[in-house]
Nucleic acid binder design. Structure first.
Lengths: 160, 160
DNA sequence: GTCGCTGCAAAGTCTTTGCAGAGAG
DNA sequence: CTCTCTGCAAAGACTTTGCAGCGAC
């Protein structure tokens, strides 16, 4: 029941993005594409700052300001193309929304994030909301702990 | 399955706190007690800033600096006397740990937080962690949506 | 051409820290 | 008395905003 890395067609994703921009009278710019592509190429949970660093490495010739990264992530989040995760320390991490909803196990030593999905938990959540007459729009679940490798190896610093 | 407000003896809580301080060579100060008491008297999820405001209202004669609130909340969180919840917007909210673990439904309109507990979900979480050889230290689950009253009434601003 | 977008730097939040005086043990 | 705490203000981390020039359409 572990989702390692759902497949997602980049061309399709890009088309969706362009459509979103068109539909809202927004412009398709190099920076926006680079940000989307970099999120696609790095299917992990990234902070805005780390994403910016990835972009600098992958596209050394093109300057993308951190403000643009924030603005674009905001845009993508509103459009539900990316999701954000905020926990413990300050700051959020973003990931492409792979359509498949999933939850997270977060290693408190190395910051690694393991994704999982359990249909039974999903069902129970619906049930609880219903009992409380709560109209669910979204939900997130995080399990904190120590991942397998940190249980044996010394901890390292994760991206952040 | 809804926990409205678990009972918790303040005297006992205070004793636990004093013991913690004693045990760590820390001092029992007026500010620290006020902070604990205010958390106790307001069994809701509060931001440090809101907690500070509550204190000013309840104890107009005693000055408690916001830095002290942050420092004490940190201390209490390390001692697992309070728990924090971070989501969506920036900032964390704190609550007294009532021993009973519970999860949260968060209204995206009025910021109200409804607590719940489901043993079946707890069990499933354990199971998933075990499957991934993940050693759980803690977990948190949030369901976002619109609460019953906001579904009918206009939204108001919550504490923040 | 128009109007949105971008980078930059400045301004905002929220949180932490340095310090000198206050106060608990 | 000693050594921790506290309030204050300054510093930090992260994020947002104002602006003038740039670039998509």
């Amino acid at each position: 029941m572990l989702l390692t890395n759902a497949t997602l067609d980049y061309a399709k994703l890009l088309e969706e993005f362009k459509e979103l921009l068109r539909h809202n009278g927004l412009k398709y710019t190099t920076q926006r594409e680079i940000i989307l592509k970099t999120l696609y190429d790095n299917s992990e949970h990234v902070t805005p700052e780390f994403l910016n660093k990835l972009i600098q490495e992958a596209y050394p010739d093109i300057k993308v300001g951190i403000a643009t990264v924030y603005r674009t992530l905001s845009l993508l989040e509103d459009a539900q193309i990316v999701t954000s995760l905020s926990f413990g320390a300050q700051g959020k991490k973003y990931e492409l929304d792979r359509q498949h909803h999933h939850d997270h196990m977060i290693c408190t030593m190395c910051s690694k994030i393991i994704e999982f999905f359990d249909p039974e938990i999903e069902r129970l959540q619906e049930e609880i909301a219903q009992k409380n007459r709560f109209r669910i729009s979204d939900h997130s679940m995080q399990i904190y702990g120590i991942c397998e490798s940190c249980q044996t190896n010394p901890p390292k610093r994760g991206n952040h």
